[in-house]
């Protein structure tokens, strides 16, 4: 069985070697497409009939109060949670519901967790090395050697996330903000088409937040990555967002630019009638 599936894997080997020519079919516009998705935990509907479309190269912010279903939505896209009903497509070719977590990751969907998880026992450099797009089967991994090209790529990302000096230190000693960046850097090593970022600035200082905003806006763009950011911090969202989606009780409450959304009466009501800016900050 594993032999057959490894045969089926071969087309993706191609994908790893030449990441620029992704097999993800985005000719019809959206890179991610969720339709009528519903998830129930013990009778509680975490996601209720959710519809969401992300365009190629877009930077989308998703906001919503606690329990709105933001994290569960990420779980569904990355294959951690299976919905009760609905469909999830990546481009117009890949049905994500039929794939396992590593398969989805290999397709080019990278996820940054709410709580930063890096491999604390490994160095910053090694963290990036493991994250790199490569043949991730066993024997190639066992015999993998460090080439100059790979080294350059890692140095490049180290530079982007500003951790060049700490490259040989263990990831465990990084500050909270530095771990967040390292994690984003690891996502970048995967050359993802879609980045899912869960609360990137939670617990960050003002300066760290600014740097993160720069980092994220620099990443998104046509032909580069699409980025989905889930965030509570309205100030941060306002500083990066072009398009905002408001989730409430597992479905979309409003969608549009930050200004449009913050004037939507339904949104105002959900945030207890207060100025969303103040309330969520």
């Amino acid at each position: 069985m594993s032999f057959i599936s490894s045969l089926a894997d071969r087309d993706r080997v191609f994908d790893f070697l030449v990441p620029a020519t992704s097999p993800v079919d985005v000719r019809h516009g959206p890179i991610l497409y969720l339709e009528d998705v519903t998830v129930t935990f013990d009778g509680f509907k975490a996601i209720d009939d959710l519809n969401l479309t992300i365009d190629d190269g877009e930077l989308r912010c998703i906001i919503g109060p606690n329990g709105a279903g933001k994290t569960t939505m990420m779980d569904i896209i990355t294959g951690k949670t299976r919905p009760d009903s609905g469909s999830v497509w990546f481009g117009s070719r890949h049905n994500l519901l039929a794939m396992s977590e590593p398969e989805i990751a290999s397709l080019g969907i990278g996820r940054k967790f709410q709580k930063p998880t890096v491999f604390e026992a490994l160095t910053v450099f090694e963290n990036l090395e493991l994250a790199m797009a490569a043949d991730k089967r066993i024997l190639p991994t066992l015999t993998a050697r460090m080439s100059g090209e790979i080294r350059d790529r890692i140095e490049e990302v180290l530079d982007t996330i500003g951790l060049v000096e700490l490259r040989d230190g263990p990831a465990g000693i990084l500050s909270h903000g530095q771990k967040q960046w390292l994690e984003i850097g690891m996502l970048l090593m995967q050359r993802p088409r879609l980045l899912l970022v869960d609360e990137p600035v939670a617990g960050m200082t003002e300066q760290e937040m600014e740097r993160t905003a720069e980092l994220l806006t620099g990443l998104a763009g046509k032909g580069k990555q699409s980025v989905v950011v889930v965030e509570h911090d309205m100030g941060f969202v306002r500083s990066i967002a072009r398009q905002v989606t408001v989730l409430h009780q597992g479905s979309v409450l409003a969608e549009g630019s930050m200004d449009q959304v913050s004037q939507d009466p339904k949104v105002v009501e959900v945030y207890l009638g207060a100025d969303p800016d103040e309330e969520a900050a």
Partner: peptide, 11 residues
């Protein structure tokens, strides 16, 4: 150290 993270990296 972080099984889920490794999985999301595609291993």
């Amino acid at each position: 150290d972080a099984e889920a993270r490794t999985r999301f990296l595609g291993y």
